[in-house]
Design a protein around this nucleic acid. Structure first.
Length: 476
RNA sequence: GUCCCGUUCGUCUAGUGGCCCAGGACUCAGGAUUUUCAUUCCUGCAACAGGGGUUCAAUUCCCCUACGGGAUGCCA
């Protein structure tokens, strides 16, 4: 075993990439990049009941979009393939058998019903729930025979009954458990597949994982894992358990209280760069006050030592702000790349030069790409008015002014800030209008509201012909 | 219930014994700039869960309590 740094992101393919998963993947990736290690993607698909068609492809695709490319994994390949646990079941069964031989694991023939009844009883009596070890004492030879005869069985780990275990977590430092709290975990299920605990330990060892960086929900499983390493005579990896991502009510981040799939956020028009930047701050902070970081910058800046212990609420408002920052500060070409599909989807084909200008107009005004398209609506579709607006548009002075503009506007070639201003000034003098009575009718007619960008921009983005038509309507 | 982990502004966080009557960011409020809107800039509101210790000195160290979360599965 080498002393190279190797970390892994080991999701179970449930259909989409959870933002908590993204954060875990990101921290793994960043740590690997920071120390010159390797980032491995491994698929933990040992639960046949949870199989979701296309989930893995989707997962890999999403990781790719946000820029977290595995050095090894199902799509990339690598020296430790296969990276699907469902393709390694033979391996786990052999290791489980080894444990049985050593007396560190045993066959258990309890049915689900029996176990349910046991737990219910324990709960009623006020005892700690957990497997009571009733199959522990079946003689190995007899157990083997029963299994061979076709009786359904699982293999359980024979954990110590008493004493303490402790270990040093990179994030939490010393963590101690008492063995009497750890029950005999199932290692091999009755369908022959391994549980997470066995597969995880076997693979981390075989794949030479040096650091396990995962969510805090795994912390209480560590004793079992450590015991497995010990029984196999393997050196356990270093551990770092990350704080959980929380709903606004502080419960573990869940679907019920908003979107949890990274894909959902991308579909709404959050940029990969903003997602990464926002998510990295949920549980980690750079030494200074800086909060805006590109992935490349994070690769230099990141440190596991600066990871927080407490859970972090996923605050969509700050994500929106963060996305807005990227929308207005990234190079326009970059934003166009991401915004184009959203605009085409909403408005159909748009001439490239106009598309570029629409996007540049919308980006300081929106928090997401979808909102950017909404900002452009007034340039793209028929305007609607309230009764109050109509009254102003139908004023005699407004009508006269529109007629004047109808004639003058097409004469201004090219249309520039200067020419529009000159026209505005001429209009003001000719009709003796200023302030609200000058600007409001024009804005209303050309843009649909009294507030908005300057008139030149409105005309350019709507198109001269559209603008002329919009004035025409009110002169009849 | 039991075990484990956690607890600084509403939220994300800085802070490792004196620099902190606690700093930054989001949100919110007010102001400046802009014909208006958006952007930008400035200002403001707002927190060390509570109680005991240790110390000349605690946000920082220890203990207790409270609260929150996780685990307690033939799910990961």
């Amino acid at each position: 075993m080498s002393d190279a740094i190797r970390v892994r992101f080991a999701p179970s393919p449930t259909g989409y990439l959870h933002v908590g998963g993204l954060r875990t993947a990101l921290y793994n990736y960043l740590y690997a990049r920071k120390v010159g290690g390797r980032f491995i993607l491994r698929i933990e698909d040992t639960d046949q009941e949870r199989y979701v068609e296309g989930a893995v492809e989707n997962l890999i695709n999403t990781l790719d979009i946000v820029g977290l490319k595995p050095d090894e994994g199902p799509a990339t390949g690598g020296d430790f393939a296969p990276y699907y646990q469902s393709q390694r079941t033979e391996l786990y069964r052999n290791y489980a058998a080894e444990l049985v031989e050593k007396g560190a694991a045993y066959y258990c023939f309890c049915s689900s019903e029996e176990l349910d009844a046991m737990r219910e009883e324990q709960q009623q009596e006020g005892y700690v729930t957990g497997y009571d070890g009733r199959c522990r004492n079946i003689a190995p030879a007899e157990a083997k025979k029963r299994a061979a005869d076709g009786e359904p069985y699982v293999i359980r780990l024979k954990t110590p009954d008493e004493g303490e275990v402790f270990f040093y977590d990179i994030v939490r430092e010393k963590v101690t458990f008492n063995w009497d709290m750890v029950d005999d975990q199932v290692l091999i299920k009755s369908d022959g597949f391994p549980t997470y605990h066995l597969a995880n330990v076997v693979d981390d060892h075989l794949m030479e994982i040096s650091h396990v960086i995962r969510g805090e929900e795994w912390l209480s499983s560590v004793p079992k894992h450590l015991f497995l390493y010990e029984q196999f005579g393997w050196k356990p990896p270093k551990m770092a358990h990350l704080p959980l991502l929380l709903n606004p009510d502080k419960s573990k981040l869940s679907k019920r209280q908003g979107d949890v799939a990274v894909e959902d956020y991308l579909a709404k028009g959050f940029l990969p760069s903003a997602m990464i930047n926002f998510v990295v701050l949920l549980g980690w902070h750079a030494a200074g006050d800086r909060e805006i970081f590109s992935l490349a910058e994070l690769e230099k800046e990141f440190s596991l030592k600066r990871v927080n212990k407490a859970g972090a609420v996923f605050d969509i408002e700050k994500l929106r702000w963060m996305n807005g920052q990227y929308l207005k500060n990234e190079p326009l070409a970059e934003i166009i790349k991401f915004a184009r599909p959203f605009f085409l989807e909403r408005f159909g084909d748009i001439e490239e030069d106009r598309l570029s200008r629409l996007i540049d107009y919308a980006r300081p005004r929106a928090a997401t790409l979808i909102e950017m398209t909404e900002e452009c609506l007034p340039f793209m579709q028929k305007l609607e008015y309230s009764a109050e607006d109509r009254a102003l548009l139908e004023e005699e002075t407004s009508k006269a002014m529109f007629s004047f503009w109808l004639e003058e506007l097409s004469l201004q070639k090219p249309l520039t800030a200067e020419s529009v201003n000159a026209l505005l000034k001429a209009t003001s003098e000719k009709f003796d209008l200023k302030g609200k009575m000058l600007y409001s009718p024009l804005r209303l007619a050309l843009f649909g509201t009294e507030h908005g960008p300057d008139l030149l921009q409105i005309i350019e983005l709507s198109g001269l012909q559209t603008s002329l038509k919009r004035l025409q309507i009110w002169t009849d």
